[in-house]
Design a protein around this nucleic acid. Structure first.
Lengths: 402, 402
DNA sequence: CCAATTTTTCCCCAATGCGGATTAATTCAA
DNA sequence: TTGAATTAATCCGCATTGGGGAAAAATTGG
């Protein structure tokens, strides 16, 4: 258990104030005090320190109170966008996306590399990522020295705490200490996170969960991932494991176990087609599988429609089970499989409707979101920013260890 | 978000010290200091306050160091068993169990009432519980005034935070504010908890999870429940909901959804028998169903063996899915269904073995436990004690509000 | 009986958050 | 233009916390 010294107290309140400023745009000290339930004195002290550290800025306008406001006008505070820069990356089987963001999480530059990293050696993948990071940083008009932190989002089972990739569809090996590898290559603190966790946090900051501190996100990419937000924080299982949704068992067939990934994984939907496999296989290899599938479904490709339908059904059941376990007010479903379109979605919704127990029917709402590629990378950047927000920084406090 | 004042800091450290003393028996101040990473000065101050408050006792013996220990001997500290008394209750369909425990959670008296409360009105159930609590307290040689807190463990979906029973197989109504009802009846602070959460905490304090701060417990009673311990605390979903495992979907049949409760619920295993239903139905009504089932299985009742087998299979799959999601180091499985014996257990283990993904095959170990009835009630008592431990109490601090 | 050793406490310090008084910056009315 | 009213932000002093180092306490070994 963590010992509670004044330093911790400080860190907690400091983080709360900073987070309040981030969430509620330009905001006055009084309002921070109301929202955070800290006294105005304390807020003043903390914002003073944050100003000294250059993490926030004052702005003498934008007071939105009743125009007939008497008295001393409020000074609005907002994040200093230039207080830090981070790099976020999303590595998928057929593409890599990089973004550089400022302290607010706003994208300064982005780089999409449609490169197949699938099953390359670790060294090659690390090379490609290193290159992508460096290029994206240069595109933003910066150098690596200006970057405070890097976060790489990966599919699979990623141990955030230790920076080890337990297993990932894009790695041949397991238990790879990839965070250390990238940190020493780039000479910038680099952390890892599951791609599902990254996009979940992106939705909490910018997307469809801005208003919620509890929610669940299901990502349907090559790998099926899960992100659980609990009291505003990512719920990382014991030891910081991410969740690997594809391994969920949906039923037990006559001969073997039926897993979710076997019904709803990208390769399950698109692969193993008796006819016309050539084009689709080729598209899949290039990461364009879902786009082509959309076209084929529009052309009433019955094999594919059947696959999409059963995939939707499987995901609907899995989501219902997750809602049963976690009872979140909202479930956000993202990922490339959404582009399969109505066939998939209707099937998913219908299966969910049937599977969700009536007692919690109204608890959760389903939300679908087809995020752009860079949103995923932005999510990774947010993971990095979160750590910066919590770090001690600054002028005050005993050890400004940086 | 909670504001971090000195009071909170105090509360955290105080709780840590108290919890360390509870867990590690008679223990010296130095050792507390080592374990909690607080300075000896702070430990001394806190233990001083705890001694003043009468929550702990000194003992001038039992120093287990090297006998040839020089210097001032350590003074051992331990919980004061008489610092408080709580009542824990477990309400099931066919029986109620009450215990009175001391501050250590040791049972002072217990009362088992084999009464069917199933589907009685709320008022009648409340009457029965009130009576049970009063009797059990008297049995312990106490009066209600000596009781500091009461916790009632119930099957179903229980909102601990608000004290509302969302749905329970023993209640006809839903959304019952049962905590208020019992508090006003007994005039002692009364809280609720799901029975699965209660037994999970009991295992953390006294049972098979003493050594772990992360684990999952699956309870197989009339209702199928889940308790998740995360960093030493019960993981309560958003809003403090308990989990209702029985609603999990295991597959989708040709005509309808197949839920876990339909395969592994008590009534699913024992009910709907074409032959010999009379005796079993009668036994079930009296809550002796599982005991009789054990006998029948030993006598090679094939219908029942089949039911137990498929129930085990279903639970095995569900447990595998839960391990996939939470990745706990240990899963404890408890509940009356365990008494079905090897048929059930072997089937469960085999299904689990088949269903658990190979990547996390070694993460979790399965442990089975047939706890006595009073252990469940003791778990409820522990829930009550946990709240007492966290409450401010005492001589120090600004407001000794009691 | 004294030295050595170990535990526990005492004294003082730095840091924190808070309450009340004070200062700052503005609007409104005369 | 000036002063009163009003609201925001800060300053000062207080209580509380935990921590470090010195001192006291309680033993054992010679």
């Amino acid at each position: 258990m963590k010992t509670a010294d004044p330093e911790l107290m400080r860190a907690i309140n400091r983080f709360n104030v900073l987070d309040t400023i981030r969430r509620h745009g330009p905001i006055s000290r009084v309002e921070i005090s109301e929202r955070s339930e800290l006294s105005t004195t304390t807020v003043s002290a903390i914002t003073g320190a944050l100003l000294d550290d250059g993490l926030i800025l004052t702005r003498h306008e934008g007071d939105l109170r009743n125009a007939a406001a008497r008295g001393r006008p409020r000074v609005m505070l907002e994040l200093n966008p230039d207080a830090a820069r981070v790099v976020g990356a999303k590595i998928a089987a057929h593409s890599m996306v990089f973004v550089v963001t400022n302290f607010c999480g706003e994208v300064l530059s982005q780089l999409i590399l449609p490169i197949r990293v699938n099953r390359q050696s670790i060294a090659v993948i690390a090379d490609l990522i290193e290159d992508g990071v460096r290029r994206c940083v240069v595109d933003a008009g910066l150098s690596l020295g200006d970057v405070d932190s890097i976060c790489i989002g990966l599919p699979g089972v990623v141990e955030h705490r230790t920076g080890i990739v337990r297993s990932s569809p894009i790695f041949r090996e397991t238990d790879v200490d990839f965070a250390s590898e990238m940190t020493s290559r780039l000479n910038v603190p680099t952390i890892l996170e599951s791609d599902a966790h990254a996009i979940a946090l992106a939705h909490h900051w910018f997307g469809k969960a801005r208003d919620l501190d509890d929610m669940v996100l299901v990502s349907l990419e090559q790998t099926l991932g899960l992100g659980v937000l609990h009291h505003g924080q990512l719920f990382r299982g014991a030891g910081g494991l991410s969740h690997n949704l594809g391994d969920l068992v949906l039923g037990i067939g006559p001969k073997d176990i039926v897993r979710l990934s076997a019904l709803a994984g990208e390769s399950a939907i698109l692969g193993d087609r008796p006819d016309g496999g050539g084009r689709l296989a080729e598209a899949m290899r290039l990461g364009r599988g879902m786009a082509l599938a959309q076209t084929l479904i529009a052309a009433e490709d019955n094999t594919l429609i059947a696959a999409a339908t059963s995939a939707g059904e499987a995901v609907g059941l899995a989501v219902a089970n997750i809602v049963t376990l976690f009872g979140p007010p909202r479930v956000i479903i993202v990922g490339s499989s959404l582009s399969l379109g109505a066939v998939f979605l209707d099937s998913l919704r219908e299966a969910y409707r049937r599977a969700i127990p009536s007692s919690i029917q109204t608890v959760a709402e389903l939300v679908f979101d087809e995020s752009a590629d860079e949103t995923w990378a932005q999510g990774a950047a947010v993971v990095a920013l979160c750590e910066l927000y919590e770090s001690p920084w600054g002028t005050t406090g005993p050890a400004p260890a940086l």
